[in-house]
Amino acid sequence: MNLRRLLLISVPYAWLLLLFLVPFGIVLKISLSDQALAIPPYTPTFDLAAGWQGFVDFLSKLDFENYSWLTQDDLYWKAYLSSLQIAALSTVLTLLVGYPIAYGMANAPTEWRPTLMMLVILPFWTSFLIRVYAWIGILGQNGYLNQLLLWTGVIDEPLVMLNTPFAVYIGIVYTYLPFMVLPIYATLEKLDHDLLEAAEDLGCSRFQAFWLVTVPLSKPGIIAGSFLVFIPAVGEFVIPSLLGGSRTLMIGKVLWDEFFSNRDWPTASAVAVLLLLILIVPIVLFQRHQQKMQELDA
């Protein structure tokens, strides 16, 4: 039994150590190294043969140069800021679009709910890339939306929508909508209808009852949904690179370009480390929130 237990623990443990934690160590190390025209394109490289002295030398050559570089070149901090801002605004938009859907589902006839639930989840199973791609055709200069608007006479000139932040907002709202709808639906579905009747009985109008009872009680779902949209949106790569064009600055795309186009591994690593540090705050907050909810449920 104990041998089995050891085996059961150690196999996934070792796997995650090797393929998750160690790689982060490497990223951290390279972020402190210097770029070099070599293979691999950075120095210092750690030389095992030099022993302890080699290790000390190696440590002494690490520095925070790349990080100070990040703060000096305004491309980076602008990209961080703009990522956070785009993620925050799209989270709010997703909430505004998602809440009525979740509310409608939770108040739908009981026999309809599984179907509606499936309809919300179904897009999640289809390719993310394809769902983003679908909007290129809609938002483009000659896209379906411009065709429709021109045809109905709302506009005379096609609007520029693709390759703007607007397209990125649409892309994020569209692809992350299920992550917002489902947690909110879960809290709304549990909502005791008596509470709304009690609020009305105590003098609330329908709308007041919604605002004073439904909304506060669905707060856990709103918070969970917002984190589930915000956290991945900050580091999003596919949406800004397909819909955002060159004018939309997002850090995931900067990292990609730094790595693949400029082959500047130390800078790319520093960008990654800083992005992770920024995300740790919302991640920890989210974790706490989920734990609190679990404890309340129990």
Binding site: F20, I26, L255, F286
Partner: peptide, 30 residues
């Protein structure tokens, strides 16, 4: 190391793909 273990289970769910991808690539090269 149980805390570390559960941390490593949950972290990949929230770490951006670009970071996971970059770190794995650097590992494979190393």
């Amino acid at each position: 190391g149980r805390t570390l273990f559960s941390g490593m289970i949950y972290a990949p769910l929230v770490v951006p793909d670009v970071i996971t991808g970059l770190s794995l690539l650097l590992l494979f090269i190393a």
